[in-house]
Design a protein around this nucleic acid. Structure first.
Lengths: 218, 218
DNA sequence: GTCCTTATTGACTTGTGGTCAATAATGGCT
DNA sequence: AGCCATTATTGACCACAAGTCAATAAGGAC
Protein backbone atom coordinates (compact mmCIF):
# COMPACT_ATOMS: atom_id res chain seq x y z
CA UNK A 1 0.00 0.00 0.00
CA UNK A 2 1.66 3.17 -1.19
CA UNK A 3 1.84 6.08 1.21
CA UNK A 4 -0.54 8.95 0.78
CA UNK A 5 2.18 11.33 -0.05
CA UNK A 6 0.43 13.01 -2.93
CA UNK A 7 -2.44 14.16 -0.72
CA UNK A 8 -0.07 15.66 1.77
CA UNK A 9 1.89 17.22 -1.02
CA UNK A 10 -1.15 18.92 -2.45
CA UNK A 11 -2.38 20.17 0.89
CA UNK A 12 1.02 21.43 1.74
CA UNK A 13 1.45 23.16 -1.55
CA UNK A 14 -1.96 24.71 -1.27
CA UNK A 15 -1.49 26.12 2.21
CA UNK A 16 2.09 27.26 2.18
CA UNK A 17 2.95 29.50 -0.64
CA UNK A 18 6.59 28.91 0.15
CA UNK A 19 7.24 25.90 2.31
CA UNK A 20 8.87 26.49 5.68
CA UNK A 21 12.59 25.94 5.31
CA UNK A 22 13.85 23.20 7.53
CA UNK A 23 17.18 24.24 8.91
CA UNK A 24 19.27 21.21 9.63
CA UNK A 25 21.84 21.69 12.30
CA UNK A 26 24.79 19.60 13.27
CA UNK A 27 24.14 17.40 16.27
CA UNK A 28 26.60 19.11 18.57
CA UNK A 29 25.64 22.61 17.55
CA UNK A 30 21.97 22.00 18.22
CA UNK A 31 22.73 20.45 21.55
CA UNK A 32 24.87 23.38 22.54
CA UNK A 33 22.27 25.86 21.38
CA UNK A 34 19.55 24.14 23.38
CA UNK A 35 21.72 23.94 26.45
CA UNK A 36 22.54 27.62 26.51
CA UNK A 37 18.92 28.44 25.91
CA UNK A 38 17.82 26.16 28.70
CA UNK A 39 20.40 27.51 31.11
CA UNK A 40 19.16 31.00 30.50
CA UNK A 41 15.54 29.98 30.92
CA UNK A 42 16.14 28.05 34.12
CA UNK A 43 18.10 30.94 35.54
CA UNK A 44 15.36 33.43 34.84
CA UNK A 45 12.35 31.36 35.82
CA UNK A 46 11.85 28.46 38.18
CA UNK A 47 11.89 24.84 37.04
CA UNK A 48 8.22 24.41 36.45
CA UNK A 49 7.67 27.88 35.15
CA UNK A 50 9.80 26.81 32.22
CA UNK A 51 7.77 24.77 29.76
CA UNK A 52 9.25 22.57 27.11
CA UNK A 53 6.87 24.03 24.56
CA UNK A 54 8.09 27.54 25.28
CA UNK A 55 11.66 26.40 25.08
CA UNK A 56 11.07 24.70 21.76
CA UNK A 57 9.32 27.78 20.44
CA UNK A 58 12.20 29.99 21.51
CA UNK A 59 14.62 27.67 19.80
CA UNK A 60 12.36 27.66 16.74
CA UNK A 61 12.20 23.90 16.67
CA UNK A 62 9.55 21.34 17.40
CA UNK A 63 9.10 19.83 20.82
CA UNK A 64 9.82 16.40 19.43
CA UNK A 65 13.28 17.50 18.37
CA UNK A 66 14.04 18.78 21.81
CA UNK A 67 13.16 15.38 23.17
CA UNK A 68 15.44 13.87 20.60
CA UNK A 69 18.37 15.60 22.25
CA UNK A 70 17.27 15.48 25.88
CA UNK A 71 15.03 12.54 26.71
CA UNK A 72 13.33 14.30 29.60
CA UNK A 73 12.95 17.78 30.97
CA UNK A 74 15.03 16.84 33.96
CA UNK A 75 17.84 15.65 31.77
CA UNK A 76 17.91 19.04 30.15
CA UNK A 77 17.87 20.75 33.52
CA UNK A 78 20.53 18.51 34.98
CA UNK A 79 22.75 18.95 31.94
CA UNK A 80 22.63 22.70 32.45
CA UNK A 81 23.26 22.33 36.15
CA UNK A 82 26.27 20.14 35.48
CA UNK A 83 27.75 22.79 33.25
CA UNK A 84 27.37 25.45 35.89
CA UNK A 85 28.80 23.17 38.54
CA UNK A 86 31.75 22.45 36.30
CA UNK A 87 32.38 26.13 35.78
CA UNK A 88 32.31 26.82 39.48
CA UNK A 89 34.68 24.02 40.34
CA UNK A 90 36.95 25.00 37.49
CA UNK A 91 37.17 28.56 38.74
CA UNK A 92 38.17 27.32 42.15
CA UNK A 93 40.70 24.75 41.05
CA UNK A 94 42.38 27.30 38.84
CA UNK A 95 43.86 28.96 41.92
CA UNK A 96 47.54 28.00 42.01
CA UNK A 97 48.36 25.36 44.57
CA UNK A 98 51.79 26.64 45.39
CA UNK A 99 50.53 29.70 47.23
CA UNK A 100 50.84 29.82 51.00
CA UNK A 101 47.67 28.43 52.63
CA UNK A 102 46.25 31.69 53.87
CA UNK A 103 46.59 33.44 50.56
CA UNK A 104 45.35 30.40 48.75
CA UNK A 105 42.15 30.40 50.77
CA UNK A 106 41.76 34.10 50.21
CA UNK A 107 42.17 33.74 46.46
CA UNK A 108 39.80 30.82 46.37
CA UNK A 109 37.21 32.82 48.23
CA UNK A 110 37.70 35.67 45.80
CA UNK A 111 37.07 33.33 42.92
CA UNK A 112 34.09 31.92 44.70
CA UNK A 113 32.57 35.32 45.34
CA UNK A 114 33.26 36.35 41.77
CA UNK A 115 31.29 33.41 40.58
CA UNK A 116 28.53 34.03 43.06
CA UNK A 117 28.02 37.64 42.09
CA UNK A 118 28.17 36.90 38.41
CA UNK A 119 25.86 33.90 38.36
CA UNK A 120 23.78 34.83 41.36
CA UNK A 121 20.55 33.32 40.21
CA UNK A 122 22.12 30.18 38.85
CA UNK A 123 24.25 29.87 41.95
CA UNK A 124 21.23 29.89 44.19
CA UNK A 125 19.46 27.23 42.20
CA UNK A 126 22.67 25.26 42.03
CA UNK A 127 23.26 25.02 45.74
CA UNK A 128 19.76 25.41 47.00
CA UNK A 129 18.50 22.57 44.84
CA UNK A 130 16.21 24.20 42.31
CA UNK A 131 14.28 20.97 42.11
CA UNK A 132 12.62 19.12 44.91
CA UNK A 133 14.68 16.17 46.06
CA UNK A 134 15.56 14.75 42.68
CA UNK A 135 18.28 12.18 43.29
CA UNK A 136 20.30 13.18 40.26
CA UNK A 137 20.18 16.85 41.14
CA UNK A 138 21.09 16.02 44.70
CA UNK A 139 24.00 14.06 43.32
CA UNK A 140 25.31 17.02 41.37
CA UNK A 141 25.06 19.26 44.41
CA UNK A 142 26.78 16.83 46.74
CA UNK A 143 29.43 16.35 44.11
CA UNK A 144 30.16 20.02 43.72
CA UNK A 145 30.28 20.48 47.50
CA UNK A 146 32.73 17.66 47.86
CA UNK A 147 34.96 19.00 45.15
CA UNK A 148 34.76 22.50 46.55
CA UNK A 149 35.82 21.28 49.95
CA UNK A 150 38.72 19.42 48.43
CA UNK A 151 39.72 22.39 46.37
CA UNK A 152 39.79 24.60 49.42
CA UNK A 153 41.94 22.32 51.47
CA UNK A 154 43.65 19.87 49.21
CA UNK A 155 47.37 20.24 49.10
CA UNK A 156 47.36 22.61 52.01
CA UNK A 157 49.86 21.81 54.77
CA UNK A 158 46.97 21.68 57.20
CA UNK A 159 45.37 18.76 55.51
CA UNK A 160 47.65 15.90 56.58
CA UNK A 161 47.37 17.06 60.16
CA UNK A 162 43.63 17.21 60.02
CA UNK A 163 42.69 14.30 57.81
CA UNK A 164 42.52 11.84 60.64
CA UNK A 165 40.46 13.93 63.02
CA UNK A 166 36.91 12.66 63.42
CA UNK A 167 35.35 16.10 63.19
CA UNK A 168 37.40 17.21 60.24
CA UNK A 169 35.05 16.16 57.47
CA UNK A 170 32.09 17.60 59.33
CA UNK A 171 33.90 20.82 60.05
CA UNK A 172 34.81 21.43 56.44
CA UNK A 173 31.33 20.68 55.18
CA UNK A 174 29.89 22.82 57.91
CA UNK A 175 32.14 25.68 56.97
CA UNK A 176 30.97 25.36 53.38
CA UNK A 177 27.46 25.67 54.77
CA UNK A 178 28.57 28.85 56.47
CA UNK A 179 29.99 30.16 53.23
CA UNK A 180 26.88 29.32 51.25
CA UNK A 181 24.49 30.88 53.69
CA UNK A 182 26.58 33.94 54.18
CA UNK A 183 26.97 34.36 50.43
CA UNK A 184 23.30 34.06 49.70
CA UNK A 185 22.48 36.39 52.55
CA UNK A 186 25.03 38.82 51.22
CA UNK A 187 23.61 38.61 47.71
CA UNK A 188 20.18 39.57 48.97
CA UNK A 189 21.29 42.47 51.12
CA UNK A 190 24.91 43.35 51.17
CA UNK A 191 25.54 44.30 54.74
CA UNK A 192 29.22 44.77 54.26
CA UNK A 193 31.69 45.37 51.45
CA UNK A 194 32.82 42.35 49.60
CA UNK A 195 36.35 42.35 50.95
CA UNK A 196 35.10 42.34 54.46
CA UNK A 197 32.93 39.33 53.74
CA UNK A 198 35.86 37.51 52.26
CA UNK A 199 37.94 38.23 55.32
CA UNK A 200 35.16 37.10 57.60
CA UNK A 201 34.81 33.84 55.72
CA UNK A 202 38.50 33.12 55.79
CA UNK A 203 38.87 34.01 59.46
CA UNK A 204 35.93 31.79 60.30
CA UNK A 205 37.59 28.92 58.51
CA UNK A 206 40.69 29.42 60.58
CA UNK A 207 38.65 29.63 63.76
CA UNK A 208 36.81 26.43 62.93
CA UNK A 209 40.03 24.63 62.19
CA UNK A 210 41.18 25.82 65.56
CA UNK A 211 38.21 24.14 67.15
CA UNK A 212 38.86 20.84 65.45
CA UNK A 213 42.59 20.87 66.06
CA UNK A 214 43.47 23.37 68.77
CA UNK A 215 47.19 22.71 68.65
CA UNK A 216 47.35 24.20 65.16
CA UNK A 217 46.67 27.73 66.23
CA UNK A 218 49.10 27.78 69.09
CA UNK B 1 -9.63 6.91 29.42
CA UNK B 2 -12.75 7.88 27.46
CA UNK B 3 -15.93 8.52 29.44
CA UNK B 4 -18.49 5.76 29.41
CA UNK B 5 -21.15 7.37 31.47
CA UNK B 6 -24.23 5.22 30.83
CA UNK B 7 -22.36 2.05 31.59
CA UNK B 8 -21.15 3.53 34.83
CA UNK B 9 -24.65 4.43 35.91
CA UNK B 10 -26.03 0.99 35.32
CA UNK B 11 -23.06 -0.77 36.84
CA UNK B 12 -23.26 1.41 39.85
CA UNK B 13 -26.93 0.71 40.45
CA UNK B 14 -26.35 -2.98 39.92
CA UNK B 15 -23.32 -3.30 42.15
CA UNK B 16 -24.16 -1.13 45.11
CA UNK B 17 -27.24 -2.48 46.76
CA UNK B 18 -26.87 0.11 49.48
CA UNK B 19 -25.50 3.46 48.41
CA UNK B 20 -22.15 4.51 49.76
CA UNK B 21 -22.59 6.31 53.05
CA UNK B 22 -21.37 9.85 52.95
CA UNK B 23 -19.45 10.50 56.11
CA UNK B 24 -19.71 14.10 57.00
CA UNK B 25 -16.89 15.42 59.09
CA UNK B 26 -16.52 18.59 61.04
CA UNK B 27 -14.56 21.23 59.21
CA UNK B 28 -11.64 21.30 61.61
CA UNK B 29 -11.38 17.55 61.95
CA UNK B 30 -11.25 17.03 58.21
CA UNK B 31 -8.67 19.72 57.84
CA UNK B 32 -6.56 18.19 60.53
CA UNK B 33 -6.91 14.72 59.07
CA UNK B 34 -5.87 15.93 55.66
CA UNK B 35 -2.94 17.84 57.05
CA UNK B 36 -1.50 14.88 58.93
CA UNK B 37 -2.01 12.71 55.90
CA UNK B 38 -0.31 15.24 53.67
CA UNK B 39 2.60 15.70 56.04
CA UNK B 40 3.19 11.99 56.05
CA UNK B 41 2.96 11.78 52.30
CA UNK B 42 5.31 14.70 51.69
CA UNK B 43 7.79 13.27 54.15
CA UNK B 44 7.85 9.89 52.46
CA UNK B 45 7.82 10.99 48.87
CA UNK B 46 8.94 14.12 47.07
CA UNK B 47 6.61 16.97 46.20
CA UNK B 48 5.66 15.88 42.75
CA UNK B 49 5.67 12.22 43.54
CA UNK B 50 2.69 12.99 45.73
CA UNK B 51 -0.43 13.32 43.62
CA UNK B 52 -3.59 14.95 44.81
CA UNK B 53 -5.61 12.02 43.51
CA UNK B 54 -3.62 9.58 45.58
CA UNK B 55 -3.98 11.76 48.63
CA UNK B 56 -7.72 12.00 48.16
CA UNK B 57 -7.96 8.26 47.70
CA UNK B 58 -5.97 7.64 50.84
CA UNK B 59 -8.24 9.98 52.74
CA UNK B 60 -11.23 8.26 51.19
CA UNK B 61 -12.67 11.49 49.92
CA UNK B 62 -13.09 13.05 46.51
CA UNK B 63 -10.48 15.28 45.02
CA UNK B 64 -12.97 18.11 44.94
CA UNK B 65 -13.31 18.04 48.69
CA UNK B 66 -9.59 18.27 49.16
CA UNK B 67 -9.60 21.38 47.05
CA UNK B 68 -12.39 22.70 49.22
CA UNK B 69 -10.03 22.71 52.17
CA UNK B 70 -6.80 23.60 50.45
CA UNK B 71 -7.24 25.68 47.31
CA UNK B 72 -4.01 24.47 45.72
CA UNK B 73 -1.52 21.67 46.16
CA UNK B 74 1.07 24.17 47.28
CA UNK B 75 -1.22 25.50 49.95
CA UNK B 76 -1.50 22.02 51.33
CA UNK B 77 2.24 21.57 51.20
CA UNK B 78 2.95 24.92 52.74
CA UNK B 79 0.43 24.33 55.51
CA UNK B 80 2.23 21.14 56.45
CA UNK B 81 5.58 22.86 56.24
CA UNK B 82 4.35 25.64 58.51
CA UNK B 83 3.31 23.11 61.12
CA UNK B 84 6.70 21.46 61.10
CA UNK B 85 8.42 24.82 61.26
CA UNK B 86 6.25 25.80 64.18
CA UNK B 87 7.13 22.61 66.01
CA UNK B 88 10.81 23.15 65.49
CA UNK B 89 10.75 26.72 66.68
CA UNK B 90 8.58 25.77 69.61
CA UNK B 91 11.03 23.11 70.69
CA UNK B 92 13.82 25.63 70.62
CA UNK B 93 12.03 28.44 72.39
CA UNK B 94 11.00 26.09 75.16
CA UNK B 95 14.56 26.13 76.48
CA UNK B 96 14.53 28.32 79.61
CA UNK B 97 16.00 31.74 79.08
CA UNK B 98 17.46 32.10 82.52
CA UNK B 99 20.18 29.56 81.94
CA UNK B 100 23.75 30.75 81.58
CA UNK B 101 24.56 31.36 77.90
CA UNK B 102 26.81 28.40 77.38
CA UNK B 103 24.37 25.91 78.84
CA UNK B 104 21.51 27.56 77.05
CA UNK B 105 23.19 27.07 73.71
CA UNK B 106 23.97 23.49 74.64
CA UNK B 107 20.39 22.76 75.56
CA UNK B 108 19.10 24.46 72.44
CA UNK B 109 21.39 22.36 70.33
CA UNK B 110 20.18 19.27 72.12
CA UNK B 111 16.61 20.19 71.35
CA UNK B 112 17.58 20.93 67.77
CA UNK B 113 19.30 17.61 67.32
CA UNK B 114 16.37 15.81 68.93
CA UNK B 115 14.09 17.33 66.40
CA UNK B 116 16.46 16.59 63.57
CA UNK B 117 16.81 12.91 64.41
CA UNK B 118 13.11 12.45 64.98
CA UNK B 119 11.86 14.27 61.90
CA UNK B 120 14.86 13.64 59.71
CA UNK B 121 13.07 13.46 56.42
CA UNK B 122 10.76 16.35 57.17
CA UNK B 123 13.68 18.36 58.46
CA UNK B 124 15.58 17.96 55.27
CA UNK B 125 12.65 19.04 53.15
CA UNK B 126 12.02 21.89 55.55
CA UNK B 127 15.42 23.46 55.33
CA UNK B 128 16.51 22.30 51.93
CA UNK B 129 13.41 23.68 50.31
CA UNK B 130 11.45 20.65 49.12
CA UNK B 131 10.04 22.78 46.36
CA UNK B 132 11.89 24.71 43.74
CA UNK B 133 12.01 28.42 44.48
CA UNK B 134 8.44 28.93 45.52
CA UNK B 135 8.28 32.34 47.18
CA UNK B 136 5.94 31.20 49.93
CA UNK B 137 8.06 28.20 50.76
CA UNK B 138 11.14 30.37 50.72
CA UNK B 139 9.33 32.68 53.10
CA UNK B 140 8.65 29.91 55.57
CA UNK B 141 12.25 28.81 55.47
CA UNK B 142 13.66 32.28 55.91
CA UNK B 143 11.21 32.81 58.71
CA UNK B 144 12.19 29.72 60.59
CA UNK B 145 15.87 30.54 60.18
CA UNK B 146 15.35 34.01 61.52
CA UNK B 147 13.44 32.76 64.51
CA UNK B 148 15.98 30.06 65.15
CA UNK B 149 18.78 32.56 65.13
CA UNK B 150 16.87 34.76 67.54
CA UNK B 151 16.09 31.85 69.77
CA UNK B 152 19.72 30.91 69.96
CA UNK B 153 20.95 34.32 70.90
CA UNK B 154 18.04 36.39 72.11
CA UNK B 155 18.30 37.35 75.73
CA UNK B 156 21.88 36.21 75.90
CA UNK B 157 24.30 38.68 77.49
CA UNK B 158 26.33 38.53 74.32
CA UNK B 159 23.63 40.00 72.20
CA UNK B 160 23.72 43.66 73.24
CA UNK B 161 27.43 43.68 72.68
CA UNK B 162 27.13 42.18 69.27
CA UNK B 163 23.97 43.68 67.88
CA UNK B 164 25.72 46.68 66.42
CA UNK B 165 28.55 44.83 64.71
CA UNK B 166 28.24 44.77 60.93
CA UNK B 167 29.19 41.14 60.61
CA UNK B 168 26.99 39.94 63.40
CA UNK B 169 23.89 39.17 61.41
CA UNK B 170 25.93 37.43 58.76
CA UNK B 171 27.88 35.45 61.31
CA UNK B 172 24.79 34.10 63.02
CA UNK B 173 23.13 33.14 59.78
CA UNK B 174 26.34 31.59 58.61
CA UNK B 175 26.64 29.59 61.77
CA UNK B 176 23.10 28.32 61.23
CA UNK B 177 24.27 27.23 57.82
CA UNK B 178 27.08 25.37 59.50
CA UNK B 179 24.62 23.70 61.85
CA UNK B 180 22.28 22.70 59.04
CA UNK B 181 24.96 21.25 56.84
CA UNK B 182 26.65 19.45 59.69
CA UNK B 183 23.32 18.05 60.86
CA UNK B 184 22.33 16.77 57.48
CA UNK B 185 25.76 15.33 56.93
CA UNK B 186 25.54 13.69 60.33
CA UNK B 187 22.11 12.26 59.56
CA UNK B 188 23.41 10.60 56.45
CA UNK B 189 26.52 9.11 57.97
CA UNK B 190 27.10 9.65 61.63
CA UNK B 191 30.83 10.14 61.84
CA UNK B 192 30.77 10.88 65.54
CA UNK B 193 28.54 10.37 68.54
CA UNK B 194 25.79 12.85 68.98
CA UNK B 195 27.26 14.56 72.01
CA UNK B 196 30.45 15.21 70.19
CA UNK B 197 28.58 16.84 67.37
CA UNK B 198 26.74 19.04 69.80
CA UNK B 199 29.98 20.12 71.40
CA UNK B 200 31.51 20.82 68.04
CA UNK B 201 28.58 22.98 67.04
CA UNK B 202 28.60 24.95 70.23
CA UNK B 203 32.36 25.44 70.18
CA UNK B 204 32.17 26.62 66.60
CA UNK B 205 29.56 29.16 67.57
CA UNK B 206 31.87 30.49 70.21
CA UNK B 207 34.77 30.58 67.82
CA UNK B 208 32.75 32.46 65.26
CA UNK B 209 31.62 34.98 67.82
CA UNK B 210 35.26 35.40 68.66
CA UNK B 211 35.96 36.32 65.07
CA UNK B 212 33.22 38.91 64.92
CA UNK B 213 34.03 40.44 68.29
CA UNK B 214 37.51 39.41 69.41
CA UNK B 215 37.37 41.31 72.70
CA UNK B 216 34.67 38.97 73.96
CA UNK B 217 36.89 35.98 74.21
CA UNK B 218 39.68 37.80 76.00
C1' DG C 1 20.31 10.50 -10.25
C1' DT C 2 19.50 6.80 -6.19
C1' DC C 3 20.01 5.24 -1.66
C1' DC C 4 20.87 5.74 3.30
C1' DT C 5 21.16 8.05 7.26
C1' DT C 6 19.25 11.05 10.54
C1' DA C 7 17.61 15.63 11.93
C1' DT C 8 13.10 17.16 12.14
C1' DT C 9 8.12 17.46 12.48
C1' DG C 10 3.31 17.48 14.34
C1' DA C 11 -0.36 14.96 15.77
C1' DC C 12 -1.28 12.14 19.51
C1' DT C 13 -1.49 10.12 24.39
C1' DT C 14 -1.30 10.45 29.23
C1' DG C 15 -1.25 12.21 33.63
C1' DT C 16 -2.26 15.64 36.93
C1' DG C 17 -3.59 20.06 38.90
C1' DG C 18 -7.62 22.61 39.22
C1' DT C 19 -12.97 24.00 38.50
C1' DC C 20 -17.83 23.78 39.21
C1' DA C 21 -22.61 22.81 39.29
C1' DA C 22 -25.26 19.41 41.53
C1' DT C 23 -26.32 16.71 45.75
C1' DA C 24 -27.13 15.02 50.32
C1' DA C 25 -26.22 15.31 55.28
C1' DT C 26 -26.99 18.25 59.18
C1' DG C 27 -28.80 21.38 62.47
C1' DG C 28 -32.05 24.96 63.56
C1' DC C 29 -36.64 26.72 63.51
C1' DT C 30 -41.60 26.47 63.84
C1' DA D 1 -42.73 15.95 62.67
C1' DG D 2 -41.64 18.65 58.63
C1' DC D 3 -39.35 22.49 56.26
C1' DC D 4 -35.39 25.33 55.20
C1' DA D 5 -30.80 27.16 54.99
C1' DT D 6 -26.33 25.83 55.22
C1' DT D 7 -22.36 23.42 53.77
C1' DA D 8 -19.59 19.18 53.40
C1' DT D 9 -19.23 16.29 49.61
C1' DT D 10 -19.25 14.44 44.98
C1' DG D 11 -17.92 13.31 40.16
C1' DA D 12 -17.70 14.80 35.77
C1' DC D 13 -15.17 18.01 33.36
C1' DC D 14 -11.32 21.26 31.61
C1' DA D 15 -6.60 22.96 30.65
C1' DC D 16 -2.19 22.40 30.03
C1' DA D 17 2.30 20.36 29.98
C1' DA D 18 5.30 16.20 29.65
C1' DG D 19 6.39 12.63 26.78
C1' DT D 20 5.73 9.31 22.34
C1' DC D 21 6.04 7.97 17.63
C1' DA D 22 5.39 7.13 12.86
C1' DA D 23 6.16 9.81 8.94
C1' DT D 24 8.98 13.20 6.36
C1' DA D 25 12.78 15.66 4.18
C1' DA D 26 17.53 17.44 4.14
C1' DG D 27 22.18 16.08 3.11
C1' DG D 28 25.92 13.27 1.96
C1' DA D 29 27.97 9.06 -0.37
C1' DC D 30 28.20 6.41 -4.29
Amino acid sequence: MPPRRPIRRVLRAALDARPKRRVRLDNDERRAQLLTLARKAFSDRSYDEVSIDDLAREAKISKGLLYHYFPTKRDLYVAGLREIAEELVLTLTSVPRELPPAERVGRSLDAYLDFVTEHSRAYVSLLRGGIGSDPEVAGVITGVRKRLAESFLDGSPLQPMLAGKPGFETAVRGWLGFVEHASIDWLENARMPRDQLRDLLSKVLLAIMGVVAPQLLS
